[in-house]
Simulated assay, not measured.
Amino acid sequence: MKLTHTPLRVSIGAFILNSGLGKRSLEGQSAEAVHGMASGAIPQLKQFEPDRFAKLLSRGEIALGAALLNPFVPSLLAGAALTAFGAGLVQLYLKTPGMREPNSLKPSQAGIGLAKDVWLVGAGLTLMLDALTHRRLVR
């Protein structure tokens, strides 16, 4: 990991790790709410029971947060995982009714919390592109 990646990886990694740790005990109605929103945007997620989905989401966030915080995980790999995770959240924003103003990408008041997750895609792509361009310059 490059030293210049440290602030980005630590700040995002700590945030996502904390989010995953907070979801460890999701069950019942809370798990159903998270599962319902996610499966509304990504229908393939309906195959999971809500409690199982919540556990998988928690574990995924914990793993991603830990990977970002671990300096031995290459930035290309951490960036790819972050980009995929962020893209899923952006898809949730784009496909969930009421998150955007009609006929617009502009977020509604309810959608601001999800719309901001586009920065995760940008950060992930930055880590990946920097790792890829750095490899070419070094060769």
Rank of each mutant, 00 (worst) to 15 (best):
M1C: 10
L3S: 09
L3N: 09
T6Y: 11
T6C: 06
P7C: 07
P7D: 05
L8S: 06
L8F: 15
L8K: 06
V10R: 14
V10T: 08
S11K: 11
I12H: 03
A14S: 15
A14H: 14
F15S: 03
F15V: 04
I16Y: 02
I16S: 05
L17S: 08
L17W: 03
K23V: 01
R24V: 06
S25N: 11
L26I: 06
L26H: 01
L26Y: 01
E27N: 11
S30I: 07
E32I: 02
V34Q: 04
V34L: 15
H35M: 02
G36N: 11
G36S: 15
S39L: 08
G40D: 12
A41P: 13
P43Y: 12
Q44W: 10
Q44Y: 10
Q44H: 11
L45D: 09
L45W: 11
K46H: 09
K46V: 08
F48I: 03
F48R: 05
E49I: 10
E49H: 15
P50R: 02
D51H: 02
F53L: 14
F53I: 04
A54Y: 00
A54E: 04
A54D: 02
L56P: 08
L57W: 00
G60A: 13
E61I: 03
I62V: 15
I62H: 00
A63L: 10
L64C: 04
G65P: 01
G65L: 02
G65S: 01
G65W: 04
A66W: 01
A67T: 03
L69V: 07
L69I: 13
N70E: 10
P71E: 12
F72H: 12
P74G: 08
S75M: 09
S75H: 10
L76W: 11
G79P: 05
G79E: 05
L82D: 02
L82P: 03
T83Y: 02
T83P: 03
A84R: 01
A84C: 09
A84T: 06
G86Q: 05
A87N: 05
A87P: 06
L89S: 04
L89I: 10
L89V: 12
Q91A: 15
Q91I: 15
L92G: 04
L94R: 00
L94Q: 00
T96W: 12
T96E: 09
P97R: 08
G98A: 10
G98I: 13
R100S: 05
R100Q: 15
E101C: 11
E101Q: 12
P102S: 13
N103A: 14
L105T: 00
K106Q: 15
P107A: 02
A110H: 12
A110N: 12
A110I: 13
G111W: 01
G111I: 05
G111C: 08
G113M: 14
G113H: 07
A115R: 04
W119P: 04
L120W: 03
V121S: 04
V121R: 00
G122S: 01
A123Y: 01
G124N: 03
G124Q: 00
L125W: 09
L125I: 07
T126N: 07
L129Y: 15
L129P: 05
T133H: 13
T133R: 13
H134Y: 07
R135S: 14
L137Y: 09
L137G: 15
V138F: 06
R139H: 14
R139V: 13
R139A: 13
